[in-house]
Design a protein around this nucleic acid. Structure first.
Lengths: 221, 221
DNA sequence: TGATCCATGTCAGCGATCTGTCAGCTTTGC
DNA sequence: GCAAAGCTGACAGATCGCTGACATGGATCA
């Protein structure tokens, strides 16, 4: 889980980084609105903590630009205590939750957890792609209705590809999501898992795009 | 099954804890609204018993905040006798049931059972899964119609899995719901209970999904 | 009070499975 | 045709989960 913290007060930023870091999240920080907008638009975060009062471009504008660009990353907005109008505006602009300042760090952590949990519980738990079907609830995979037994790693790999079906996913991206990027893995490890997965699912289930990565066909939609 | 009791009168709280505890639930208590909100938002309970008159933050506000945050935990609200308006407000705020004070403990227990049963999508207190049948009211389990005697812990483990049949339940989740999260147990404790349970129910009654957790097959629905 | 029983946690050892690595092979793109 | 990218099967260490034996501690009953 990767989180971007947008906060211009360095003391508060450091506090937040410490708290979220201790809770096991990978945290990055930026201190002004322009940089925030750029990072949020180009990088892939699971959640963004966004202060509204920022240099260069205010938080609400940043949020609106993200949403206008179709970025649906979860956003937790930090508002000044009692600034009711700001809060309403924030929600209109597409914030997923807000937290009035000042706040206790525990409270922030609770909100972050709740948001991530909530977002994970959305939609159906079944993803279909061609002959493949993946049920996240039962953690079960079938091919043409026939159950297939996968190891945990194989399952996670397939789940990630199917969550992003129709898109080519690069090896670095896969490695990061399977292992967390602390790496120390031969590139070959991924290929080995792929091989085992294909043997179970059929060779044509996952396509290789030489030089780019892997993809599961769109199939049913 | 893990229940949070939010009640500021220590005598009543103790009574409720005793009653629910005797019925086999894992019970935790808090005495004020802020703590209640925090716990309900961060921890994962199967049901929350919520008194409305609380220090620091009143029950209704707590409930509204949970719902606003997307927490769908079952909530049983305790209202003052005849406070009809409160009752309506409670239901508006997202309570699943209410109980006017004062009440007899049996009545509370019945409501709690009914709510939990209902949430499992069942009309009766009996859950079926394949050859297994679990009667929550009598705390009785049969396999192919033959009664099986279970220890309290074994029963709670099976009950939780059957309430969530068809889903893979992870060891941490099971530990949390069996023990409440306070004390540290060796991971092995759970495995030991599983082994004893399987010996009584038959090896295939509960499936292990290596690396993920345990599951009871969907079976009859 | 003491003896006994039962429930449950802990431990150690065992299989089985998983998964990273390697070496050699095949395919692809130029 | 060549080099790089990707695939594959074999292997071995690591990990996971299961089991039986034992220890503990609380409840029950004499």
């Amino acid at each position: 889980m990767r989180i971007l913290v947008v906060e211009d007060d360095p003391r508060i930023a450091a506090d937040i980084v410490a708290t979220l870091g201790a809770a096991g999240y990978v945290v990055e920080t930026v201190g002004d609105g322009e940089e925030a907008w750029f990072r949020g638009d180009t990088e892939d975060y699971d959640l963004i903590v966004l202060d509204l009062g920022l240099p260069k471009m205010d938080g609400l504008s940043v949020l609106k630009r993200w949403r206008a660009a179709g970025r649906m990353t979860l956003v937790l907005v930090l508002t000044a205590r009692g600034a009711w109008a700001e809060r309403v505006e924030g929600i209109d602009a597409g914030a997923d939750d807000y937290l009035p300042k000042p706040f206790r760090m525990e409270e922030l952590l609770a909100r972050v957890r709740a948001l991530i949990r909530r977002s994970a519980g959305l939609g159906t738990s079944v993803i279909e792609a061609g002959p493949l079907s993946l049920d996240a609830r039962q953690m079960r995979v079938t091919r043409n209705g026939v159950p297939v037994t996968l190891s945990p790693l194989e399952y996670r790999l397939l789940a990630y590809l199917m969550h992003h079906k129709g898109r080519v996913v690069s090896p670095p991206e896969l490695l990061e999501h399977l292992y967390g990027d602390d790496d120390a893995h031969e590139a070959n490890a991924l290929e080995a898992v792929m091989a085992r997965l294909r043997k179970k699912l059929g060779q044509d289930s996952i396509a290789t795009r030489r030089g780019f990565g892997y993809a599961v066909a769109q199939g049913t939609e």
